[in-house]
Design a protein around this nucleic acid. Structure first.
Length: 596
RNA sequence: GCCCCGUUAGCUCAGUUGGAUAGAGCAUCCGCCUUCUAAGCGGACGGUCAGGAGUUCGAAUCUCUUACGGGGUACCA
C-alpha cells in the first residue's frame, strides 16, 4: 500500500513531465485517500500545480488522469472534481495485494527506520499505596507502546522503576509502627499493597490533625506543615534509612515485600510485564555521584546551607534543587542515577519515560541537567507525556476518597462482561474455567480499549458506565468481530472450503475492495503509531477494520456463496482480517477470544 | 504573576504534511435475524470547529489576540 502510493507519485511525476514538460519532485505532490463520497482510492490535489504548470486545476487533473489510465496498468479509472483527481485502482492490483499479504506473517516487523534499541519505562509505582485508575492508563500505555515499537523491529526492554524509597514510604512505615500492632497481609486478609495504603492514609489523617492543632495554637500553616511531629519523625526516619539504620531498613524490607506481592498480583491480572526492574533504593546513590560530578564540573552549585542546585535560568527555567541540605536525595537525584544505570545496561538509542503530564517540567529539567553533565544519552530521552484521567465528578482526589482502585475496577469490568455474556447466551459448551477466562478477557478488553483509544497526550474522562459497554467503538466490538470470523473459519474448514483462489475472481464487490484496502493499511498504522507513540492509532485502525468487516459480512454471503472462486476469496479475506485484528489487539495488550 | 497545554454534535472522542459537503461511538427515533454469531448492519436527527483578527487559491489545522478550563512554578513524587 505504501509502495503503491509511492509508485503512483512516481508515475504522476512522469505524467507531468510527459504531458506538461515540467519537472515535479514526487515529494511535492499531495496524495491523500479519496473521500468516501467519491469513486477512487487515491486523490491528487491539483491546486498546488496550477502555478507551475500554468493551467487550471480541472485541466491538469483531466490530462494527468488520462495519461495514467493509458500508461499505468494499476490505475483503472479516474474522475476529476474541481481540483481533485481521484484515481481508481484495478481489481487485479487489489487481488495481488491480498495474495501478497496472505503470503506474509502479519506479526512480522514493519520496518520504519525508527530507533532500534529502546527502553520503555512505565508503571513505576510508589510503594506506599495500591495502583489506581491513573496507573492503569500508564501501564496499558507503556505496555502497548513497547509492543508497537517491537512491531517495528526494535529491540525493546520494558523497565519498571520502583520508587521504593523516600519520604512517602517512611510515612506508611511510621504509621504502621504507631498503629499497626504487627498486623500482616495474611493476618488482616488484605493484599499487601492495600495494607500499606491503609497506613499511608492513616498517616495523612493524623498528620492533618496535628497541623490543625498547631494552627489553633497560632502557628502559621507552612510552619505547621513542616513542624508537625509526624512529619518531623518521617524526615528523621528517612535520614535513618539513608544511614542504614537496621531496624528501619528491616521494617522497610518487610513492608516493601508485601507491596511487591500485591503489585505482582495486579500486574499479572491486567496482563502487563517487565523485562527489568529498577529500584530507586539502588540507584539514588548513583544519582548522588552525578550530583558530585556536576559540582566538580562546575555546572551545579552549593548553597550556604549545604543544599545543591542547578541554575537553569539561562534556559528559561528556574533554579532546581538536586540534593537537600541534610544530604538526603530528592526525586531528581535518583532520576539522574537511574538514567545513567539504564544507559550502562542497555546503551539505548531511545529511552521512553511513560509519565503523566504533570511532570512535564520535571522531565524537561532532567534532560537539561543531563545535557549540562555532557551525557551522550540526554537527547535519546523521550518523555511520553500522557494526560490525567478525570471522573465524571471531576479530578480523582485521595483526600475525598474518589480514587478508583485498580483491583476493584478490574473486578467490576469482569462482572459486567460476565453479565452481558450470559445475557447473550452464545457460550454453550465452554467449561467454567474457559468462561471465567473469557469474562476476564472481555472485561479487560473493554477497559484497555477505553483507556487506549484516546490520544495519550490528552486528558481524558473516565465514565464507569461507558467503560464496560460492549457496543460501538469498544474493545469487545473488535473482539466480537474476531470471534465471529473465527466461527466462520471453523465452519469453512468443516465444509472443506478451499481458501484463496484469488486469481480467478474477475471483479470485486465494493465491500471486498474496501477490506483489502483497509488490510493493506496495517503497516501504515503501525508506522504512525510508533512515530507518535500512540496506541490510539492502532485502536482506531482496528475499529475501522472491524467495522468494515461487519459491513462486508452483512452485504455479502461467504459460506453460502455458490461460486467457488468468490467463496474462496471471501474466506481468505476473512482469515486475513481475523489475523490482522488479532495482531492489532495484541499490540494493545488485548486478547482475541475464538468465540464469545 | 510567569511558563506549558487544552476548547470540534446533547455526551465521549477522531480529524495525517493546510484541501472536496468536518467524521465515529453513545444517547433519541425508524428499519433489518425461516440460523456464515444481531456484542451486528442500514437510515434519520444533531456543528458559528470557544469568540475575534490575520496569512492564501483554500484554515478545525498556521500566526496574533480575548475568554474559559487544566497543569507546573526553588527542599512532594
Amino acid at each position: 500500500m505504501q509502495q503503491l502510493e509511492q509508485d503512483l507519485k512516481t508515475a504522476l511525476g512522469a505524467a507531468i513531465q510527459q504531458v506538461f514538460g515540467a519537472l515535479m519532485p514526487a515529494e511535492q505532490l499531495t496524495i491523500q485517500p479519496t473521500r468516501k463520497d467519491f469513486a477512487g482510492t487515491f486523490t491528487l490535489v491539483t491546486f498546488p500545480l496550477t502555478k507551475a504548470l500554468g493551467k487550471g486545476p480541472e485541466q491538469i487533473g483531466q490530462a494527468l488522469g488520462e495519461w495514467l489510465t493509458a500508461n499505468e496498468p494499476r490505475v483503472s479509472g479516474f474522475n476529476v472534481v474541481k481540483g481533485f483527481l481521484n484515481l481508481e485502482i484495478a481489481d487485479a492490483e487489489w487481488l495481488r495485494l491480498l495474495r501478497e499479504m496472505r503470503a506474509q506473517d502479519v506479526a512480522a516487523p514493519v520496518k520504519t527506520g525508527g530507533p532500534q534499541r529502546v527502553v520503555v519505562e512505565y508503571s513505576s509505582p510508589n510503594t506506599n499505596k495500591p495502583l489506581h485508575l491513573g496507573h492503569l492508563r500508564n501501564n496499558f500505555l507503556g505496555y502497548s507502546v513497547a509492543e508497537i515499537l517491537k512491531a517495528t523491529g526494535a529491540e525493546v526492554t520494558k523497565a519498571n522503576l520502583v520508587n521504593d524509597r523516600g519520604i512517602h514510604i517512611c510515612k506508611s512505615m511510621l504509621a504502621y509502627q504507631e498503629y499497626g500492632h504487627g498486623e500482616t497481609p495474611a493476618s488482616a486478609g488484605i493484599k499487601g499493597d492495600h495494607l500499606i495504603g491503609k497506613y499511608y492514609v492513616l498517616f495523612e489523617k493524623h498528620y492533618r490533625e496535628q497541623i490543625k492543632q498547631l494552627e489553633a495554637e497560632g502557628v502559621a500553616t507552612d510552619v505547621a506543615k513542616r513542624e508537625a511531629p509526624l512529619m518531623r519523625h518521617a524526615q528523621e526516619m528517612l535520614q535513618q534509612w539513608e544511614a542504614g539504620d537496621e531496624a528501619v531498613v528491616s521494617l522497610w524490607r518487610q513492608m516493601n515485600g508485601w507491596v511487591y506481592e500485591g503489585f505482582n498480583d495486579t500486574y499479572q491480572r491486567i496482563g502487563v510485564d517487565f523485562d527489568k526492574f529498577y529500584y530507586e533504593s539502588e540507584t539514588y546513590l548513583l544519582g548522588k555521584e552525578r550530583v558530585e560530578e556536576g559540582l566538580q564540573k562546575g555546572v551545579f552549585f552549593r548553597k550556604d546551607d549545604g543544599s545543591v542546585w542547578v541554575d537553569l535560568t539561562d534556559d528559561g527555567l528556574d533554579q532546581k534543587l538536586l540534593l537537600r541540605a541534610d544530604g538526603t536525595s530528592v526525586y531528581m537525584t535518583q532520576d539522574l542515577g537511574t538514567a545513567e544505570l539504564k544507559y550502562q545496561d542497555f546503551g539505548y538509542d531511545s529511552s521512553v519515560y511513560v509519565i503523566a503530564d504533570e511532570q512535564n517540567y520535571h522531565m524537561q529539567v532532567l534532560k537539561l541537567v543531563l545535557k549540562k553533565l555532557g551525557k551522550p544519552y540526554a537527547d535519546a530521552i523521550y518523555h511520553l507525556s500522557y494526560g490525567m484521567v478525570d471522573l465524571p465528578s471531576g479530578k480523582m482526589k485521595s483526600r475525598e476518597g474518589t480514587v478508583v482502585d485498580a483491583d476493584e475496577l478490574v473486578e467490576e469490568v469482569k462482572d459486567a462482561a460476565k453479565e452481558a455474556t450470559l445475557a447473550k447466551g452464545k457460550t454453550e459448551g465452554l467449561s467454567e474455567a474457559e468462561l471465567d477466562q473469557l469474562y476476564h478477557q472481555l472485561g479487560l478488553g473493554a477497559l484497555k480499549y477505553y483507556l487506549l483509544k484516546v490520544d495519550p497526550k490528552k486528558r481524558m474522562l473516565f465514565n464507569p458506565e461507558e467503560s464496560v459497554k460492549l457496543d460501538g467503538d469498544t474493545g469487545p466490538f473488535i473482539q466480537y468481530t474476531h470471534a465471529r470470523i473465527s466461527q466462520l473459519l471453523r465452519k469453512a474448514a468443516e465444509m472443506g472450503i478451499e481458501v484463496g483462489a484469488t486469481a480467478e475472481v474477475a471483479e470485486l464487490h465494493p465491500a471486498e475492495r474496501d477490506l483489502v484496502q483497509a488490510l493493506a493499511g496495517y503497516a501504515t498504522a503501525v508506522t504512525e503509531a510508533a512515530k507518535a507513540y500512540s496506541p490510539a492509532v492502532i485502536g482506531q485502525y482496528a475499529y475501522d477494520l472491524a467495522k468494515l468487516y461487519n459491513r462486508f459480512y452483512n452485504d455479502v454471503k461467504v459460506l453460502p456463496e455458490p461460486d467457488a472462486a468468490k467463496r474462496g476469496l471471501r474466506v481468505a479475506l476473512s482469515a486475513q482480517v481475523a489475523a490482522t485484528l488479532r495482531q492489532s489487539l495484541k499490540l494493545l495488550g488485548i486478547q482475541a477470544p475464538e468465540r464469545m
